[in-house]
Design a protein around this nucleic acid. Sequence first.
RNA 1: GCCGCUAUCGUCUAACGGUUAGGACAUAGGAUUCUCAAUCCUACAAUCGGGGUUCGAUUCCCCGUAGCGGUACCA
Length: 558
Amino acid sequence: MKTPEESKKIAELLFPDVKETADDILKKYPKRNLKENQMVLRFAPSPTGFLHIGGVYSSLVCVKLARQSSGISILRIEDTDKKREVANGISVIVDGLKGFDIEFNEGPKSADEQIGEYGPYIQSQRLDVYKVFAKEMVSKGHAYPCFITEDELGKIREEQEKEGVRTGYYGKWAKWRDASIDDIQKEVDEGKPFAIRLYSTGNIDNTFEMTDMIKGRATLRENDMDAVLLKSDSFPTYHFAHPIDDTLMGITMVTRGEEWFASVPLHYELFKKLGFEQISYMHFSTLMKLDNEGKTKRKLSKRKDPEADVQYYIENGYPNEGIVQYLLTLANSNFYDWRVQNPNLDIDEFQLKLEKFNKAGALFDIVKLEDICKEYIASLSAEQVYEKSLDWAKKYDKQTAKLLELNKDYCINIFNIERSGSKIRKDIVKFKDSKLQLRIFFDELFNEEEYEDILNRVDRDIQKEIVERYINIYNSGEDNVVWFENIKKLGDSLGFCSDRKEYEAKRDKYKGTVGDVAMVLRVAITKKTQSPDLYQVMSVLGKEKVVQRLEKYAQKMV
RNA sequence: GCCGCUAUCGUCUAACGGUUAGGACAUAGGAUUCUCAAUCCUACAAUCGGGGUUCGAUUCCCCGUAGCGGUACCA
């Protein structure tokens, strides 16, 4: 242990240029004037040039929780690792989240604009702040300079492993922990780089209790690691920046992934030594996926899983609202029931509850997500489907975008098929799928397709007869009931049965059912054995095109 | 290895210590004045294992097992 005088001397030796004190900094960040229960929360991602779906989840939870308490949400960019720095990292995050309507009250709005009084909100712009606190820590004997090299660190680890003790820089293994002023002076004079480490006074055998807002009460061991606070490039580590920034910015609860849970003892020690009031934590579980043929769970990974990157959803045109709804379901599983019961309420009306978060990690289930997306798109009007499909296509499918733009009314009619009444069609999961709806209605797409073969159901000459006779009786203005009656009559006259039970009973009396007659028309008009409601398809297509296609098919059946 | 957290159908989850352990997604059947989708009905399917405490345990406690996380001058 050093005397107070010695500690001050070392601090001066290490940071001769730092004139400000911790108090000076603290004064620049006045306490926020908050009402009771108002929350100030932050989402603090690293700009890696990649927006993880888990980041959308965290930020969503953060922004929503803050808003429902009439509080403040903050975006803070944690760019303290120069090795991982990426040029457009900030805009990937800001723009990506904006796409989900996730916007913060404070923080970067773009790569070069920040709003809020508690900034800067980009950690690389706050290095002077961390330096002041580092100096303060050293001068109080809570931290010290460490000149150890990577090689030496490796050797210590080897030795620890050989002895079978915990690895790490702590206690008697912390070589520079109690170095003399002279030794430090010598290294500084030689211009050796140094890191600032915590002078930990914790005891690994002591436990303490903390309450996590999701996990509840937990018993943890005290920290005894002399963790690095300031790296030799004078950037802070996460551990050091976290208590400082969250305190200065007036955060009321730290929301973060559970990968941080193991660091809580360190953070508690740091809050104490920095003289800060401890902020409460909520650690939520990370999004997982099944691997090894469903045998093990693992984190959704950027490298292995395309669906970890939000870009995947954007490129395929998954509706953002659907993704948000799915993520809210993962956060509070009662959200889904609420949504079903209150389809017309704004999502803001739903209250996220901390006690409803699950303690274990949830598997990311893309099937369920698609179900929600499907449900969401089914709830839209044809105009909305049109607009959203166009927005997507403009970026990712120029050909479809052109079709949509040039034929607005026609396309809205197409999207309107089976979109009213009680039988709402639910086959669009993502806006990329809307192109599939168009293929029947545009000759340029239609002509590229092949006819599906139904000869095993109806012979060529009969198909020809059905189509030819139908051309004569087809009236484009007739309603659904008349339309179907006509098909039944046509079938009857050709020996097809219009009663299903009758057909089942006396199969050999008939050539088939009305369904087969309709199928012939369906293939003639759409080329496929599966299509949306044929009556509506024909109405939208118009008499001219319908007849044209029927004639073409009749010729083919010669 | 060590430290910590977690554990209900395949998945997300519900159940003041008392329920035939519920719902949703998925899957499989069936129904429908046209196919597919949708819709409706039905089926399938779970309290990780072992000990306690208790009249009674999915729920509380202990042990084990498994999964996840941490064990960096990455976040």
